[in-house]
Design a protein around this nucleic acid. Sequence first.
DNA 1: CAAATTATCGCAACCGTTTGCACAATCCAT
DNA 2: ATGGATTGTGCAAACGGTTGCGATAATTTG
Lengths: 342, 342
Amino acid sequence: MTDKKKLTLKDIGKALNLSVSTVSRALKAHPDIAQETIDLVKKYAEDHHYVPNLLAINFRKNRTFNIGLIVPELVHHFFSTVISGAISEANKQGYNILVSQSNDILRDEEKASRAMLNSSVDGLLISISNETTTGEHLKEFLEEGKAVVQFDKVSELLQTPMVVVDDFNGAYNAVNHLVEQGYQRIAHIRGRVDVKNACDRYEGYKKALEDAGLPMMDHLVKPCISITEEEGYQFAKEMMEGPNPPDAIFCITDVVAFGAMKYLKEKAISIPEEVGLVGFSNWMVSRVMSPQLTTVNQHGFQMGVEAAKLLLEMIKNQDILHQETKILKTELIVRASSKRRE
Amino acid sequence: MTDKKKLTLKDIGKALNLSVSTVSRALKAHPDIAQETIDLVKKYAEDHHYVPNLLAINFRKNRTFNIGLIVPELVHHFFSTVISGAISEANKQGYNILVSQSNDILRDEEKASRAMLNSSVDGLLISISNETTTGEHLKEFLEEGKAVVQFDKVSELLQTPMVVVDDFNGAYNAVNHLVEQGYQRIAHIRGRVDVKNACDRYEGYKKALEDAGLPMMDHLVKPCISITEEEGYQFAKEMMEGPNPPDAIFCITDVVAFGAMKYLKEKAISIPEEVGLVGFSNWMVSRVMSPQLTTVNQHGFQMGVEAAKLLLEMIKNQDILHQETKILKTELIVRASSKRRE
DNA sequence: CAAATTATCGCAACCGTTTGCACAATCCAT
DNA sequence: ATGGATTGTGCAAACGGTTGCGATAATTTG
């Protein structure tokens, strides 16, 4: 802990017999300052490893060059990918990222956002929890004039720009692919009815059936609550053992599809011959299952980049009113679990 | 952007006809201040939603209540689990966490650490990149009197406390388990020779063979460079197609084991009957493969918690000299890929 | 009852940087 | 020579708290 005292403008001024203000201006080559002085000061600063005290600057300018990021879950392939993209873009622009998670609990989300709000962050990137509705804690950000951008899991009740995946078309294409493979009774293990992504995917599913002239059958749509492997297993079981079972299942997410796959394998129901399976998100697990799972890739990294770009744009141009919603295209990745035709 | 001006101590003082210093002290119930005054000020502050300006406080006190965290890769089950633990503990103690990644590139790690160093962070948690050796950029932290704690991927050249997994015993137990299952020619697809974890696991592997009275065979040890599925596939192929092939493979990591499994399945070599397979890390993929993969669980969350605890302890007690290394126990998780006996 | 405490509170410096403004010196044109 | 513009620099306030110390009034003590 040598703790060598850091050099300040005052120190430089004293050494060079200049005032603090002159030194300050010289360092940023202010036109008022003589070139000679500028060179002199810059050289001295360089030689003595002057580093400006960010704390003082931030205090003065009332900003931190930090942005906050809150996700429901950190240990999650998609979200960590988004975070990775956001960090990459933020760092490129000279910002650091503070990360927190809500565990899909509203109280935790509030705590995290308040912890960040108090002057430690210039703006917020957030993917809201399942429990978040009105988002009073986010309004506090807006009231303080701080930028907020939502991504992935968003609420339209909050008037902020957002970056989302085209869930509707992602689902539409996935289901349409099943149709093209000749599946007729396509089931959907969907997500929560109060979560926008889940609803959009459901709508995409419905539309694809409709366009294909296939009937919507209520007993072939099952809603998950916690989006787990167990739910996938259970719903697959219910449907397969019930009347008029499906010949394909489109799942809200890869993990749920894995649960369904587990059931099918236990019962020796062949995939994709007897039952086709499609997931969503393209997590690493989808490649590891056997058969490998057809899924919808979400470009999480790009989402992080876009969200950070948008937020930083807002931070830097306080005046401009931003209200855009960026919709990222998805990509169907066809693998063995749904390919029964050549 | 209503931007309502934030209430300051001065405002409260003016309203209550008190000096700024009295208000400041009253809010923290300083003994010099009359109880009446304290109540009065506190009530006023509460009613008018006074929130202290953290930027000013931090500037004055020269600290930020932020800690930095750098990992090689964010999109990584184990590391994101560690981060999750660190965030949980840090938040509990009133700290936020700034996250960055090095992508296992030294230059990126340096950039990230320098970006955090400049007064935006009180301490650093780091898992170093494969390229990091002397770690000059980390010494800069220590020189400024800022705490550093290493975790998981560490270097003993850096004189800092660290939190690591007991790689040696983890590997020992894994290999010993294979021995107990009756495997005789146990191969090891290991990690880089310049990475400590990889070496410790290798030593554990060697010791287990030795204790079992089994011969070490050089052609059954293959070193990965980038720790990928492809390497697992390739090395499994080489060994299986070579002379005196193994009847079990212990892999440095689950992903590598997956590559090996892929090869074995392609060649219809039965797992675990003909060849047993064990991974390391207990990523989600290990449960999803079929057969499910025996692996070594690392308690990443706990590692994050312990690392954060250690760092915060150091930050709060600058005086005490910390130099401990915390070694976390591992846990063998036996699944189908290695179980050929009842 | 004077002196010594004690209880309350305010003054002012300070943290390091930024920035509006004043001021002195130099310069050019009239 | 004189007035006005230009150039280069310093003064001082400001950002919002914290804190050592001194001032004052109230209380206690001998």
